[in-house]
Write a protein that binds this DNA or RNA. Structure first.
Lengths: 246, 246
DNA sequence: CTGTTAAGTGTTAAAAAAACACTTTGATTT
DNA sequence: AAATCAAAGTGTTTTTTTAACACTTAACAG
């Protein structure tokens, strides 16, 4: 049975972040427009991973599906961070050519709902057959198709803000991780340097960060203790934040 | 010239908050369905203020227009807080009846982009002719048409979170206000009690809160000094927040 | 067994948060 | 004119949090 697509004016774009213990990366798709007659490449540029929504599907389900098709992973952290519907968002020449070539009305206005998702780069094998999907360091992303650079930047801001106040960093790490990896993650995402001793003092207050009786293996130096994040402890002990910085 | 409406599947809903120095209020519209033949009221319930989007209009412009039509005010604080597109969001019997009566396909799925806005109740004279628009205390909102209760709660959460970290409380106050009014605002929106002396100590550190050489008038007690918010000072002195609470 | 590399650890000073009660001022009432 | 009312305004102490800062330890590699 063929699923019916909701309509042509709403889509979902996913900004998929990955952390490789060194830097923050984002998944981007190579958009190649090939001339029908000559078979020659007219242009190539990069886009976020986006897609239509099926008729029976919620927005978040559509985002999860895109993510699954791309990585084979389920139950991944997903967060809606904005809706993008500017009348001018698809008017760049390349975008118009692309829309025409893919049989869409280039004058139609498409609203995109943005989701960002977090995963550890290492546990992913990319598998979007027939499309060129790759990790790119966030710091090197400069131009993207459509208004995707705005969507991307908005996602990054949303991620930074969220990371400051919620324990979502663990979503970017494997199940077991070291404190140095966690610290590096904060440093890379927020773009700051943190003091090792102060960082450890701070996280040691967080009961949902569980130290394991297990050590890193295969490293040529003193192996670090491994930790894991306990969602149960977090949910149980989370308290209201009344600390306001007007 | 008649403006063309973008399409039938995207709309904007505004959650308009107002503060009256005592409590937080929200603007709601009385939705009355009248039977065509008998002229009898079939039901009446409450909705948020929503509307379609014109073809040349950005989402935020549409939200600002709704706000202007309702209050006559321009340059009001507006913040997008979410997009709502669940397949089930318009399926309640009253909603279906309403959609049919207003000539819409009851099976079509409408995506709503939510904006919340902040204003001081006192400076508003409501003027949406022909429709019954009123302020309702936020604490008394229980049932709303469509999925508007979800949208409303999502707006309230977004407002609380924003208020904790950004100086947006001033948007809910008149230009000149007292510290007690500011404190009450925080207490009401966040649902906490704050210590007067500690509150004043805290805000006295904020350089963008400007004390005026002016006092409250017409009160039967010691009149309070008036303050105003300086956006310029805020923009100039705003610094990155590196304080993280994982 | 030596060198390399990152892990792990504690103290002190400064700043911020939390807890807490009385005096002052202007308008209103008697 | 004096008394009353109601909210404004004001400091100190304790506790908690932040910030700055350097050496020892453990495992592997050669």
């Amino acid at each position: 049975m063929v699923k019916k697509i909701l309509n042509n004016t709403i889509s979902v774009d996913c900004v998929i972040f990955g952390f490789d213990f060194e830097k923050l990366n984002v998944l981007l798709v190579d958009r190649v427009l090939v001339d029908e007659k000559s078979g020659k490449e007219l242009f190539t540029d990069l886009t976020l991973t986006g897609n239509h929504i099926f008729e029976d599907e919620s927005l978040e389900d559509a985002a999860a599906r895109i993510l699954f098709d791309l990585t084979g992973l389920e139950n991944i952290y997903l967060k809606q961070f904005g809706a993008f519907g500017d009348p001018e968002r698809l008017l760049k020449p390349n975008d118009q050519a692309w829309l025409k070539a893919s049989g869409r009305d280039p004058h139609s206005r498409i609203l995109s709902v943005g989701y960002y998702s977090l995963l550890a780069t290492e546990k992913v094998t990319l598998k979007w057959k027939g499309r060129n999907v790759k990790w790119y360091p966030v710091s090197e992303v400069s131009e993207l198709a459509f208004d995707h650079i705005d969507i991307f930047q908005s996602a990054l801001e949303a991620l930074r803000r969220e990371l400051l106040y919620e324990p979502i960093g663990f979503e970017l790490l494997p199940e077991k991780f070291t404190l140095s990896q966690l610290q590096k993650l904060y440093e890379v995402v927020l773009g700051v340097e943190l003091d090792k001793r102060n960082f450890r003092k701070k996280v040691s207050r967080m009961k949902y960060l569980i130290p394991l009786d297990e050590k890193q293996k295969g490293v040529a130096h003193k192996p670090a203790r491994l930790y894991m994040f306990s969602r149960e402890v977090y949910e149980r002990t989370r308290k209201e934040v009344f600390d306001f910085n007007i």
